[in-house]
Design a protein around this nucleic acid. Structure first.
Lengths: 117, 117
DNA sequence: ACGATAATTCGACAAATATCGAATAGTCAA
DNA sequence: TTGACTATTCGATATTTGTCGAATTATCGT
């Protein structure tokens, strides 16, 4: 991942409306929500929201598709994964004991099986 | 974590110099680097860098301490963990199959033991 | 084709931010 | 206390960004 792409992505998240939109869609899962739905839930005019949705999508954090007259938006999990991996690349020299409790484990996305029974 | 704090943190990462500083310190581990060291490595005037370091620290992404005449900066792993956990909170309704390959696993920070031998 | 609905683009202005040199503050050795 | 060194704060300017209403584009049902 290029630094420029990561900067665009973090900039996209560094704004109140967009951050709540992204988190809303993270909770919504793969089905996503329509643009109008999102606008209603975060309470901003649709023109403003459209600007923000476009920015998040161009940043690789959301994806969209049309169904009839509506446009759905959902988290781009792969893009999000790339961003976080880039941020933490070569973390603490690969030595687990350096950063205490693992950062990856703290992200409660998609519960993983535990190591021992 | 408050949304405002997360916004400050993402804004801190959404800038070329600061992003490379943060990633440099992620690689550096707990020992960190002196302000002067960082300035030399990223190639910006110390006054500019000082501004950026202060911003990153106030955002909860770095911590600092003085040793003699120098000030060391290192990643605040706990603050970073809180930020990423906030971002992915309640990810895809807790259903692993929704977001394909787990996001947490992609962060190669602190290698974890594998599930099966 | 027409009218209704859903979303985006445009235009304009207010607010926030990055940058650097110069000046200041803190630390240390002699 | 003096001088050298390290880092931060100040001030001024150019750039970027968020916001909303109005206009536009796209889609649909009849």
């Amino acid at each position: 991942m290029e630094p420029k792409a990561a900067i665009d992505a973090f900039a996209a998240l560094a704004q109140e409306t967009r951050l709540s939109v992204f988190r809303l869609l993270v909770r919504a899962g793969l089905n996503g929500l329509t643009a109008g739905d999102v606008a209603a839930r975060v309470g901003v005019p649709s023109s403003t929201l459209s600007h923000h949705l476009g920015l998040l999508e161009r940043a690789g954090l959301l994806r969209s598709w049309r169904v009839q007259r509506q446009i759905f938006y959902a988290t781009d999990y792969e893009g999000t994964r790339r961003l976080l991996a880039f941020l933490m690349e070569d973390c603490c020299q690969g030595l687990p004991e350096l950063c205490g409790t693992g950062i990856a484990d703290a992200i409660d996305c998609c519960p993983k099986p535990t190591v021992d029974a």
